[in-house]
Design a protein around this nucleic acid. Structure first.
Lengths: 333, 333
DNA sequence: GTGAAAGCGCTAACAT
DNA sequence: ATGTTAGCGCTTTCAC
């Protein structure tokens, strides 16, 4: 059995109160002698406070929950690292929860986290979630929304990329490079980020006077990109530029295009969104709209911990600027 | 404040013991009437047991730790999902710890996990760790080793792929397809998996009578693969096949080869190891030795939870068969 | 400067 | 079939 505060206290000939205060740096008025004695004893006996017991009284676990759709989706690991690095730096641990974009799993996980009494949650809601989050118990702990916006009791802040502007710049880039007829292969058009990207797309269209809005709605997955191109071609649609809802879609798009004998970027220009790791490994390397994922995760954790520590987050909502990364899947012509 | 067992007990007119037993399904001999009454009260008042208090007495947190080098390395998310899915299914949560292959971070994280009193740990040690793990406190909780083998107090089992056989088959495949001179671009040759792959490589060499062992040692990273090829060419080495320590290396290798004007698979055949998600997205799609990562993670969690629950793991060590996945980076000739 | 005592919310002998 | 009691290991008033 591990050594307890009581035993340390007995050995040092002081009360547990004294030891407790020393542990928690509240030893303002404890004599240096006592302090040293206790500290030594603690070293010597390898004393480690029992966090469970502590949490029981303090109601703080120094653990946060990270709820995301799927860590095997290359979009999320960087966010997760951002979150974890910051959390760890502040002495927090993070419990990961993969929801597979299923609202029911979201609900279950949130409940688990609440039971585990995490101090706060960083939540990326399912891209299919449209309605607000009706949680069974009242969430009293702070929640920071990442990337997706939904209604949720206890929300303290939202962190998103500037999807509208990012998309606008991506599409504008295609036009500026001389592509004439741009289609938008989108993810589910039910949530804010998707809708915002759509807005950005339309804005660019208007500016460059493309008459018809060419949008195909599907999932944020490789397969959807692949399939969408086939569809486009099957129905004889004319196009020479594709703006993709995310990089995963772009991967499928490029693959499909190649199969159809279309050259990228000569015949068709392709722009993605996110700049996942893989984007630069494609052939051709993918031109894409970069979201600062690691930084967003980092900031989210920072804000969450601020709130937990009683500070109100400085900017309640944060919108991160995107950046157009021009690689080889678009070409001036 | 949340409602407690005491209040439920009072409302139901029974003792907390009774309520506790009902909560924990130990209500063998509690009258149906009482049971129903209590259960209803619990529903009605949205009672949720305080896990902290419970853990304090049971010494079980229903949380496990997952210590891996880096979740942004595409090798790990699948393992992590395997672990998490199983854990979740059994009512466990998992705390992720990214160590960046730094032994010092490993030690810190393990300490944190111990303090948090996780019930067990799944540990993928740094690929640079050669010495055993000297942990400050004695690890009394079960530890399952994934992928890497090291010495560590409290180890209950090891889960690895069959690296030797996998590598052997990968290299053999190159020879069988008619490639003559195979070089091995390896990760750090200090740990068991790397060494085993090296063994497999050598075994195939012997079998197919390639005289010289051509091995380059570096990191399991894209950059290293890229650089290794440049080196090979700079020093005028003759080769027509490359067996890569992992897929990441293969990504760099292919990129570098293309830059040098060498065609894959016509001029040079390339085989990877792991079959990460990205492998099939490369151009050409990568022939590789698949490790069943998701399954390995899943099994690791299962074994860990078995041990935690008092059962000894059935096979103390498990070696998973690899599978050669032939795609387009090798070609019969 | 330090200690006594209460209590966080629960479980688990041991009674009855 | 149900209750009494004693902690689990710690923090925190309040008192001296």
């Amino acid at each position: 059995m591990k050594i307890t505060i009581k035993e340390i206290a007995k050995m040092a000939g002081v009360s547990t109160t004294t030891v407790s205060m020393i542990i928690n740096n509240k030893a303002g008025n404890i004599s240096q002698g006592t302090k040293d004695r206790v500290l030594n004893l603690m070293k010597e006996h390898n004393y480690v406070p029992n966090v469970m017991a502590r949490s029981l009284v303090t109601k703080k676990t120094h653990t946060i929950g990270l709820v995301i759709p799927d860590i095997t989706n290359p979009f999320f690991p960087e966010i997760a690292r951002g979150v974890e690095d910051k959390a760890n730096q502040e002495g927090y641990n993070v419990i990961y929860c993969n929801t597979d974009d299923r609202t029911i799993k979201e609900e279950r996980y949130i409940e688990m986290l609440l039971e585990k009494m995490v101090d706060g949650i960083i939540f990326t809601a399912s891209s299919k979630r449209i309605e607000g989050f009706k949680n069974p118990m009242n969430v009293k702990i702070p929640v920071i929304l990442m990337d997706r916006e939904i209604e949720f009791a206890g929300i303290k802040a939202k962190i998103t990329g500037n999807n509208r502007l990012g998309a606008y710049e991506g599409v504008k880039h295609l036009f500026e490079y001389g592509y004439k007829r741009i289609v938008f292969i989108s993810g589910p058009l039910v949530n804010k980020p998707s809708l915002d990207r759509f807005e950005g797309y339309k804005k660019a269209l208007k500016e460059f006077q493309q008459q018809s809005i060419l949008v195909l709605e599907g999932d944020y997955k490789i397969d959807w990109g692949y399939e969408a191109v086939k569809k486009l071609i099957a129905r004889g649609e004319a196009f020479d530029g594709i703006f993709c809802g995310n990089d995963l879609i772009a991967v499928g798009v490029i693959k499909s295009l190649k199969e159809e004998g279309l050259r990228v970027p000569e015949d068709v220009g392709v722009v993605g969104f996110d700049d996942i790791y893989m984007a630069r490994l494609l052939d051709p390397e993918l031109t894409t709209v970069r979201q600062p994922n690691y930084e967003m995760g980092h900031r989210a954790a920072e804000m969450l911990i601020d709130v937990i520590s009683g500070k109100e987050p400085d900017p309640k909502d944060m919108v991160f600027d995107t950046e157009l990364i021009i690689r080889k899947s678009t070409k001036e012509r």
